[in-house]
Every structure is written in C-alpha cells, then in structure tokens.
Design a protein around this nucleic acid. Structure first.
Length: 286
DNA sequence: ATAGGCGCCTGCTGGC
DNA sequence: TGCCAGCAGGCGCCTA
C-alpha cells in the first residue's frame, strides 16, 4: 500500500474475467491507496477512484517480490512498483483466477451487485441466516459454498465448520433447529478467524503476499483426512461427493439428525425426513 | 427462481 | 518405467 505502479506486464494467456487488457497503460502512475477484501475478492483502491479486483481462484498467488526475483512459470501479471525495487506479481497455474479493472466506485458497486454476494461471515445477521437456511432444500455443504448466502467460505472451511458445529453436511437447511443454525454460524466464524491467524491453508500452491505458506492445514480436523481417526471420537473420517465437491466428515460426530429430541426445526419438515436428505453422488474422489 | 451439471485449466498421483 | 484416468482450493453458464 502507498506505492505507485510504474509499469504493467501481462502474459499472453488469458485468465477468467474480461479479455481486454487495454487498461494496462491507464493504471501506470496510479497509487495503491488501500487494499481490502469482500468475500474472496481482493480489491485495490487506486488514486482517481479506480480499482483492481483480484480473485485467486484455486491456484492464484499475489505476492510482492524484489524485481530481480526470477519470474516463475504461470506468472500472468507483473506490476512494477515505483520504489524501483519491488514488483507485485500474480501467478495462477490453473488460470481460474482473475484480474478486473473497474474505472469508478460505481463500477465496483455494480461488479459486486452482479455477483449478489451474501454478507461477510463475521457479521451475518441472525434473522437473515435463519431465513436463508429455512428456505432451502439444498444440503448444507451446497449452502455454505453458495457465495450469495455467505461470502468467503470455500470447500476447506465448509467441511471444517460443519465438523466444529457437529452437523452432517448432508442435512438440508430447513432441517436445522434454531440451536444448530446458530452453532453453525458461530463455527464458521471460529474456523475462519483461526485460519486467518494461521495465514490461511496451503495444500500446494497458496502463499500470502510475502510468499510465506499458510499453516492452517496443520489444524485440519476433517479436510483431506480421509481414513484418519476423528480427533473427537476416533472413528475414521469419511469422504463423499456432495454438491460436486469432496466432502469430509465424521459420521458419528456429525449425525444426520438433531442430537436432542423435541427441538424446534427452523422449517416445517419433520425431523430427519428421508426425502429431505441430500443425494450423495458415487465417485472415486478422495 | 432454483438447483444441479459441466467446462474452464494445469499438474500431480495412483493404478495398471 | 511409462501411460493415463481422475482429482484438486472456484466460479459462471446452461438446462431442467
């Protein structure tokens, strides 16, 4: 933050997002005033009220390095900084990430409105949360991954949050009791706060801005732990395919119905209704 | 309007 | 040892 952009270089390969890179010359000389985040989108506020919005996709890295640092393969964008010594680099092996130039605050607002992002996970209003859960027959795994419900939860944190909340990922939103819904909301906050403290999770590619790997993967309870003993009860962690994604959970600690009888459901479904269970796809995944 | 499936990419791993 | 199918942190488009 505070640096000016001296030059911009892009690779020939295109990423997600708008194909045009005509804005490249336009941001030269602009100062990076602030950097913030909305869901999984990283926003750079430039002078003249312009914005650059980055998404890391699956394998994106956004780092600041000394300019003489050898350029790694799959580096798609390089922003030389005006101190003359450093570069901001965007590397993305799979190219599911994106860089988007937005020319005004209004354009930025529109960008996020089009994506209909839900609230930030740290400030989800309780009434809203209940409403979104009770109104859906989708399984919780699909709901947590839906960025219009809550912005910023991905596959790792969905699995970890459901484990902490002791709720099966196959349950549907409207099957939850009020108490379970609140437990899940708190679990998401707990997991994300802890993961941020540990600077994210590195499975293969991810590094933070300084190039340092995250450490939250050392605290995974279920994600990627297929066959390992559950840290709570010792039963083997299972992996199923849900909402098209690998889903890790403990069948004993995350039961498919409320643990205590007689609790009020958010929705109108009968407790544990079979047809309200999510379909589990057959797959060799995990 | 909603929900599910698939395509986009490249690299790596495990099974044969 | 080499080949190849299948899988991986996500999103957006299409269809039913």
């Amino acid at each position: 933050m505070g640096r000016r952009i001296r030059s911009v270089t892009s690779s020939a390969k295109r990423l997600r997002g708008p194909a045009s890179t005509a804005w490249k010359t336009h941001v030269i000389g602009r100062r990076i005033n602030s950097i913030w985040r909305r869901g999984k989108w990283i926003v750079f506020d430039l002078t003249s009220s312009e914005h650059l919005v980055f998404h890391l996709g699956m394998t994106g890295r956004l780092t600041v390095v000394r300019k003489e640092t050898p350029v790694e393969s799959h580096t798609h964008w390089r922003f030389a900084l005006a101190n003359g010594r450093q570069e901001l680099r965007f590397r993305d092996v799979r190219r599911f990430g994106s860089v988007t130039y937005l020319k005004s605050p209004q354009a930025l607002d529109r960008f996020f409105e089009e994506r209909r992002l839900g609230p930030e996970p740290f400030s989800v209003p309780l009434a809203y949360w209940h409403q979104r859960l009770l109104s859906t027959k989708r399984c919780l795994k699909a709901v947590l991954l839906d960025q219009t419900v809550v912005a910023g939860v991905g596959n790792i944190y969905a699995d970890e949050s459901l484990f902490i909340a002791r709720i099966s990922p196959t349950r549907t939103g409207r099957q939850l009791t009020l108490e379970e819904a609140e437990r899940l909301r708190r679990a998401i906050v707990e997991v994300l706060r802890r993961a941020i403290t540990r600077r994210g999770a590195t499975i293969r590619d991810y590094v933070g801005g300084s190039g340092r790997e995250g450490e939250y993967q050392r605290e995974f309870r279920v994600y990627g732990q297929t066959g390992a003993p559950c840290p709570r009860c010792g039963r083997r962690i299972e992996c199923i395919r849900l909402a098209g994604r690998s889903t890790h959970f403990c069948r004993r600690c995350q039961p498919t119905r409320p643990q205590r009888k007689g609790q009020r459901l958010i929705g109108t479904e009968h407790e544990g209704s079979q047809q309200d269970q999510c379909r589990i796809e057959h797959s060799n995944a995990c």
